[in-house]
Each structure stands twice: as structure tokens, then as C-alpha cells.
């Protein structure tokens, strides 16, 4: 009898793979987007089994709650209509993409298989490291500079978006 944690990992892992496959195979764009949302919930569960509460909840708050809502919003406004328009044709780029993807799979497999096999125990520090408090502490002391740089970058992107949108409105 595997422990509850292993059981949850297996269930959530299967769910995560199934929903991510469905995301790229569904023809209907809304169905595809909703599968991605379901996938984020599976990841949320996986993070929780690793005691990373903050990362888990941010996954839902940011990806499922904000970014995917905007994606759905855009899909509905665009009104794609016939899904056949998304039908793909053969192109040399696709062959190149396949080669790159298989190279990535080989690399990942060598990484996974190279590790000592078997289920490793979760560290005792995992619970303490996953809290909002510890992440906040590290973010605002050790990683303050990268944090500020990223904030500036996002601010610049925000202003850029406003300028682009405004220019078309003025014309």
C-alpha cells in the first residue's frame, strides 16, 4: 500500500499528462483552453504534495485566475468560427520541430534515468521553505535586485502596451 502522498502524486500526474495532451489535441479552442485550466489545477495539487503551499496557490491565482481568463476572453471576442481554418498542412518547419522535440525528449529522459531510482523522502525543511514567510524573506533580501529588475521590466511592458493601444485610438 503506497502512502497517500505517492497515491496523490500518481493520480495528479496522470491527470496532468491527460489534460496537457487534451490541450494540444482538442480542435475547439475553448475546450483546449479549459483543459489547460484543468492542467493548472493538477499542478496545484502536485505542488501541494511537495509542501509548496505558496507556489501552489500562486499557480491558481496567476495562471488559472488571471492569464487563462484573458485567453478565454480573447478566444470569445475573436469568434474563430470554423475550426477547420486551424487545420495544418505539411511544411519543412514541422520536420525541424519534430527533430528538436525528440532531441528534448532524449535529453529529459537521460536526465531522469541518470538519477538514482526510487522514491526519495521529502526533506524536513520542505514545509518551512514553502511558506509565504520564507519566500518573502528570501525575495526581499537575497534576491531583491532581480526582483526589482523584473518589476521594472513588467512596468515597461505595461507602459508599452498602453502607448501602443493609445496610438491606434488617436488615429
Amino acid at each position: 500500500m503506497p502512502s497517500l502522498q505517492v497515491l496523490l502524486f500518481i493520480l495528479l500526474g496522470i491527470g496532468a499528462i491527460a489534460t496537457s495532451v487534451a490541450t494540444i489535441t482538442r480542435r475547439n479552442p475553448v475546450a483546449s483552453a479549459m483543459n489547460l485550466v484543468a492542467h493548472f489545477f493538477m499542478l496545484f495539487g502536485l505542488y501541494l504534495t511537495l509542501q509548496a503551499q505558496f507556489v501552489a496557490i500562486v499557480q491558481i491565482l496567476v495562471y488559472a485566475g488571471a492569464i487563462m481568463v484573458l485567453v478565454i476572453f480573447v478566444i470569445m471576442l475573436l469568434n474563430l468560427g470554423k475550426e477547420q481554418s486551424l487545420d495544418e498542412k505539411f511544411s519543412p518547419y514541422k520536420v525541424l520541430g519534430m527533430i528538436m522535440a525528440s532531441a528534448f525528449v532524449v535529453m529529459m529522459m537521460s536526465m531522469i534515468l541518470g538519477k538514482p531510482s526510487g522514491y526519495t523522502q521529502l526533506s524536513d525543511k520542505a514545509l518551512a521553505n514553502g511558506t509565504t514567510e520564507s519566500i518573502g524573506n528570501v525575495l526581499f533580501t537575497q534576491y531583491l535586485f532581480p526582483f526589482e529588475i523584473i518589476s521594472l521590466l513588467l512596468l515597461a511592458a505595461l507602459i508599452g502596451a498602453v502607448v501602443l493601444a493609445n496610438r491606434t485610438a488617436v488615429k
Binding site: V37, Q53, F54, A56, I57, V58, I60, L61, A64, G65, A66, V69, G130, T131, T132
Partner: peptide, 13 residues
């Protein structure tokens, strides 16, 4: 540990 964030996350979903 993240009680308030759960409320915000679920309302956003």
C-alpha cells in the same frame, strides 16, 4: 498557511 490567498484564488477562478 495561505488562507487569504485561497479565497482570492478561488474568487478569481
Amino acid at each position: 498557511n495561505v488562507g487569504v490567498l485561497i479565497i482570492l484564488a478561488l474568487t478569481s477562478v
